[in-house]
Amino acid sequence: MAAITTGLGSRLVSTDTQAKAFQELPVISLARLASTDPKERKALAAEAAINSGFFYISDHGVPQSVIDGIFEQAKEFFALPAEKKMQMDMHNSPAFKGYQPLKGENVDPANRGDVHEAWDMGDDSQVMREGKKNGNQWPSKTDLPEFQPKLQRAWDEIMALGKRLFPLFALALDLPEDYFADKLKSPGSTMRILHYPPQFGPMDSKEIGIGAHSDYECFTLLLQHGDVQALQVLNGAGEWVEAPPKPGTFVLNIGDQLQLLSNSIFKSTIHRAINRSGVERMSSPFFFGLDYDAVLEVLPSCVTEERPALYEPIKAGEYVEKRLAETYV
């Protein structure tokens, strides 16, 4: 076993690099999301609060054409010459938006850098703490004329889906469905496109696609392109479980902000990616956070004499910025 450092403390994980077989992550249909029956929505919320913290969602309403557009543009973007991509170096942005080269990120401090490249975007109108702008860095329209409109359309569609999901998590915590509404006026969220080259030769557990980590925001919606298996999720027994792509679905996982708010009733699940498929892999996660000035404070309903508050209050923006600064080398 080895210790993985997260923003909410250290956790013990297995050092075995081979995924161990066990049942697939569940698939939850969102067909009941628009139901006018509170009991139906409550039942769906109960499913979303399952112990794994990781599951697929189907019937999500995001058009397949929009999803296809993400990966069409991602393929063209990552094929650009390195010097053009580095003109968008995310270190030029106070909000870490833009391009990150291979091994420019290291989510597990015990590793030597994550074997992927990425481009990150946020809401252009979003203002972070201390008046800092999100600072999106778009590729030239001469190079990629459809990149910005297609990625912006995807942002709008997936953001709308995420906002429809927050009432489920409120219900699962026995809160009013609109509990998060006033904390989502200008949510501190990020969408990224990721390219994982194939890795060959002997396995080096210190250099993998992305090291073992938890996500920093409330929850993540992940799109996986094609049929390349790389994502692995840590279960309660310390085993790595494969989460292969499933057509027509997102993978949803709980992040740190919900773990903090719920006093660890919701678990921010450890996961990683290892691309030993022999071909490139692309994915696109969307990280849903609360407004940067929203205070992350353990909910009173999640505190008892036997279970005191485990975390100190912190603003959402401060927490995410701290984690990002620790991640990017």
Rank of each mutant, 00 (worst) to 15 (best):
E117P: 01
A154M: 05
Y179V: 06
K84T: 05
V107M: 10
F55E: 03
D178Q: 07
A46E: 15
K133D: 08
K97D: 05
F55D: 00
D182C: 10
P63R: 03
A74R: 01
L80I: 07
G131A: 10
G61H: 06
D156F: 07
S65F: 14
Q100S: 14
Q100V: 14
E47L: 09
D108H: 09
Y99F: 10
D59V: 03
H91N: 04
S93F: 11
M128V: 05
Q126I: 03
N51W: 11
L173A: 01
L173N: 07
F180R: 01
M128N: 14
V127F: 06
G131S: 05
A49E: 04
P101D: 06
Q152P: 06
S93G: 00
H60W: 06
P149G: 10
E83R: 15
A160N: 11
M86G: 06
E105S: 11
K141N: 13
F147E: 00
D174W: 08
E117H: 02
R129N: 07
E146S: 13
P139D: 05
W138E: 04
L161Y: 09
P94F: 08
A160D: 10
L144D: 00
I67S: 12
S65P: 10
K85S: 02
K132D: 13
S52G: 14
A95K: 08
Q126H: 14
E72K: 09
P176N: 09
G98M: 03
K75P: 09
P176I: 08
A118F: 08
A82L: 15
L102T: 06
L165I: 13
N111S: 12
M86W: 04
K133S: 14
F54G: 00
N136I: 03
G135C: 12
G162N: 02
N106Q: 12
E83W: 07
K97H: 05
P81V: 04
D174I: 07
P145H: 06
M90V: 06
K132S: 09
Y99H: 03
